[in-house]
Amino acid sequence: MTTTTQAPPVTVPTRQAGSRRRVRPARLVLHAFLICVAVGWLVPLLLAVYASLRPYAETAARGYFSLPHKLSFDYYVDAWQRGGQPRYFINTLLIAVPSVLLTLFFASFVAFLISRRRIRFGKFLLIAFTAGNLLPQQVLATPLYVMYSKIPLPWWMSWPSELLYDSYWGVIAIHVAFQTGFCVFVLTNYMDTVPQELVEASIVDGAGVWRQYWHVILPLVRPALGALGTLEFAWIYNDFFWAVILMSTGDKFPVTSALNNLRSVYFTDYNLLAAGSILVALPTLLVFFILQRQFISGLTLGSTKG
C-alpha cells in the first residue's frame, strides 16, 4: 500500500511554495502560535524523557520538576535487558502487522463496495460495522473467551493450548474484526468525498470489481489509508487487553506486557518504567514518520482533478 511508484502521478505542484521568501507578519504570528502549541504538546513528554534519565531516588526525593544531579541512559539499557524486550517486540509485530494489513485491506474493500459501488444493503452493512464499535471492547471479553476456549486448533497453529484460546490467530482475528468495523466507517466517509465519475469511467472501460478497487479507488484514498494505518498500528501495537484476556502463555505476550514486568508487586521504579515505555513507543513513531508523507501538507492528489 505504500508503493511509491503509483501510476497516477502524485503531483507536487506547490512544494516550493513554502520557501518563497515573502515573510509576512501574519506568517510570523502563525509560527509563533504553532511553536507555542508544539512546545506545550511536547512538554509532558519531554519531562517524561527527562525523568527517565534520572535515578529514581533523586526524583523521589526532589520532585520531577528539579535540576538534575546525574543523567544517564542506564535505565534504557536496564529496561531493554530486564524486560526481555527483543522477544516481546517480535511477538507484538506478529500480532500487529498482520492485523493492521488485513484490517485496512478488508475495510477498504468493504468501504469501496458501500461508498462507490453502492451495493444493496450497503447502508445497513455500514451501520452494522460502525455500531459494533460503540461498545467498549471489555463487553466482548467473556463470551469471546468462552468461544475461543472451545475451538480446537491443530498443534502447529496453537501450541501448547491447541485451542483458539492462547493463540495469535485468535488475537489477530478479534483485532481485525473489531478494527475493521471502525475502518469501514472511516474509509466509507473518505471515499464519499472522491468523485463518483472516476469509478464510473472505469466501469465503462469494462474493469472488474478488483481493478476498480485496487487501481482506481485505493490510490485516491491513500491519505486516508496512511492516516488510518498510523492510528491502527498505534492502537493495535499498544493494545494489551486482548492478549490479557485471550492468552495465558507468558512468553507469547506482546511488548506492553514486558512493561508490566518492570513493575514489582508493590514497589515500582517509575523512571525505569518511563524508559521502558519510551523504548516501546519508538516503533509506532517510526510508522508515523513512514506514513506521514501520505497525508502531509505540500502534497496534493493531482488525480482528484480528473
Binding site: Y145, S149, P160, S161, L163, Y165, D166, V244, I245, S248, T249, G250, D251, F253, S257, N260, N261, R263, V265
Partner: peptide
C-alpha cells in the same frame, strides 16, 4: 516455568484456571 506478569496473572486467573 510459564511467567506472566503478576497483574495480568491476577486479572486472568479465572480464565486461566478454566482453560489451560
Amino acid at each position: 516455568i510459564n511467567t506472566v506478569d503478576h497483574n495480568t496473572f491476577q486479572e486472568n486467573i479465572t480464565r486461566y484456571l478454566q482453560a489451560t
